[in-house]
Design a binder for these strands. Structure first.
Lengths: 192, 192
DNA sequence: TCGTTCGTTCGGGATGAGCCGAACAACACG
DNA sequence: CGTGTTGTTCGGCTCATCCCGAACGAACGA
């Protein structure tokens, strides 16, 4: 997936949050603007199969002046400590945030966001998508080999499937080696 | 998302299926090979945030010689008619399968698969990802405008976020206009 | 050594997803 | 018009997910 639910993109987006945030502020208040952007991140998180809390935690870290600990995040987001602990683990695994352990003394863990989103996408492409394509490809190739002698519709379909996946894997592998700006340039430069 | 769960990619993949399939067959049996590929599709479906049944139904359609009706799919997959009805609706919305209604007479609906997977990805990029990026961008730009007078860390972060999203949206828009082969060629041709 | 401070893990409650069977609705054909 | 056939919708069941509070464990300082 890449998306959790391709449809019903907006479900109940008015889930009651545990703490109230930014009661009433003027429009040019940085805190209010920040809050609106973070809410947008919550929504995006849902589209990409993450929980709403993941979006908020990433958002808080995005705007933070310095890496935050779990305790800090609990205070900022109003989520329980266990929730923050689990969500940060998930976000770390994806690559959306990083643990900066042992900054100075103490076992206090601090998290900082990866702000270059394309890096995150790239890692997902490599770690998840490419790997999935490879696994499928292995299965398909094995099936193709098993049916070497056969020449029916099924064999033809399997060949087609292999070719499709080979192309997709090539594209993913290639794209994962580009930066976002390079990618844009490469696509703009290409003339058909 | 694009993926439902970026982690725990393999959960209990041995869920009991309602009907038994391909009891025991030789390795070069087309049906056995087909079955293994379809099982692989079930797994892929999960990664991309779809249900296992969606993967199987798509797989059955992929190998079908002709478009299948809901009744056919019930017979082929062993799922309940209601399940097949719901899943086909989802798959149609995504673009993985198409309804070929009114082929000849009758109100019998038939489904056929989109075998060019990149087309599907492209549609998802356009319909879901690009749209999401645009929505976020609108929010971020509004926030930036609200903070025109302000010049603090938050304002800087918002500017950075806008630039990131603008680049990503450009890339998505561009990529969605390419075929898979063109995309590969464009990336291969680009020399840094 | 003993609190203190942090983070993780465990069990539980609420919500939602996936699947089922059965009832319902639409349409073709006798 | 019935009547069978096909697809959709509805209520229910089960299981996973999300989030919580509380208990647990590991490190550090006094």
């Amino acid at each position: 997936m890449l998306t959790k639910h391709f449809g019903e993109v907006c479900r109940d987006s008015a889930r009651s949050r545990p703490v109230e945030r930014v009661p009433d502020m003027r429009d040019d208040d940085p805190a209010a603007a920040r809050e609106r952007v973070i809410e947008s991140m919550e929504q995006s998180a849902e589209l990409y199969g993450l929980s709403r809390s993941a979006g908020r935690i990433y958002g808080v870290l995005y705007f933070a002046a310095e890496p935050l600990s779990i305790g800090d995040l609990v205070e900022e987001t109003g989520y329980a400590k266990s929730t923050v602990s689990n969500v940060t683990r998930t976000l770390t695994r994806i690559g959306l945030i990083r643990r900066r352990s042992s900054s100075g003394g103490g076992r206090r863990v601090r998290f900082e966001p990866e702000r270059e989103l394309w890096y995150v996408v790239r890692e997902v492409l490599r770690r998840d998508v490419a790997r999935e394509l490879q696994t499928t490809l292995r299965t398909v190739r094995q099936a193709e080999r098993d049916l070497e002698a056969v020449d029916d519709e099924t064999a033809a379909r399997i060949r087609e499937l292999r070719e499709t996946h080979e192309t997709l894997l090539d594209v993913v592998d290639l794209a994962a080696d580009f930066s976002a700006a390079e990618l844009r340039e490469a696509l703009e430069a290409y003339d058909r």
